[in-house]
Computed example of a mutant assay.
Amino acid sequence: MLSSTSNIKRALRTELRERRRNLTATERDGATEAFTANLIALTTSKSARRVACYLSAQNEPNTRPFLNWAAANGVETLFPISREDGLLDWAHGDGSTEITGLFGMPEAVGEPLGPIAINDVDLIIVPAAAVDETGMRMGWGRGYFDKTLGSMQKCPPVYAVIYDDELLDAVPREVHDQPVDGVVTPTRILTF
């Protein structure tokens, strides 16, 4: 049986998915350009030479132009690969060669480096459904990034990529949920 917090999260995720689906092509294109500029600015400001970043799915903020910039500018990128045991492996990739992984999400093609490969990155960029003003992240419900972030002894800065209207006053929280250090939206980079 799901807890009341789980039910609230599920309803909020449904609403947020619908909002993303209703964005026009023009709104998506404008947001992609702005996300890219802000992700580049964040990476540059952190002097990050090794970044962990997700490959965006269809209705997520588009990370691909940023990943193309990273590849062209010598920023090494690790991509998450979902495992059936609930952990993430990591792989090098070019940001454009991909397969459909577990749950129908895009994943990089590459030799898995193991879950601890992320320990050597300078910056982690994660997807999110929403983030609140304290930095609490609500993901899409599988817990992969929460497990990864919660298991790291020395975690580099973690930024979630969300649309402006997904920065909320508060998000429902469960014991396993992990906060982020900041968010990247089309209009700003916010550090908590």
Rank of each mutant, 00 (worst) to 15 (best):
D120W: 00
R137A: 03
P172G: 06
D165K: 02
P61S: 03
R20A: 12
T191M: 01
H92N: 14
T36D: 08
D177W: 04
G141T: 04
T97A: 11
E18I: 13
A71Q: 14
L42S: 13
T32P: 09
T77Y: 00
N62S: 14
P157K: 04
D94G: 06
G182L: 01
G93A: 01
I8G: 08
I81N: 10
V183M: 06
N68Q: 13
P127M: 12
T24K: 07
E15Y: 05
P65L: 02
T185F: 13
L42F: 09
P65C: 05
T63S: 07
G182I: 01
S47Y: 01
E174D: 14
G114Q: 04
G30T: 11
P61D: 08
P80S: 01
D177C: 09
G141Q: 04
A31N: 15
G110T: 10
I8V: 15
E133Q: 11
A57F: 12
R10C: 08
E133A: 08
T100C: 00
R19G: 11
A34T: 05
S96I: 14
V75T: 10
K154N: 11
L42A: 14
A31D: 12
P112N: 07
L87F: 12
Y54S: 10
L16Q: 06
R10E: 14
E15F: 05
T5K: 07
A25Y: 06
K147R: 15
T148P: 04
R83M: 08
D164W: 00
V175I: 11
P172R: 07
A71Y: 06
Y159C: 04
L102R: 14
A34Q: 13
R64D: 06
G93L: 04
E18F: 07
N22F: 03
D177P: 10
S45W: 00
L88P: 13
G101V: 05
I125Y: 00
T134D: 00
E27S: 03
V126Q: 06
P106C: 03
C53I: 12
T187D: 14
G101P: 10
R10P: 06
P172W: 02
N22A: 15
L12V: 02
Q153V: 02
G141D: 05
F79S: 10
T148R: 10
V161H: 03
D85G: 09
R13N: 04
L102A: 14
N73K: 10
A130W: 00
R83D: 11
P172K: 02
V131S: 00
D122I: 13
L12I: 04
L23N: 02
T5W: 01
L2K: 15
I189V: 12
F35L: 08
E166S: 08
T77R: 00
S56A: 15
V184S: 02
W90G: 12
D165P: 02
M105Q: 13
T185L: 13
I124F: 00
G30R: 12
S3T: 15
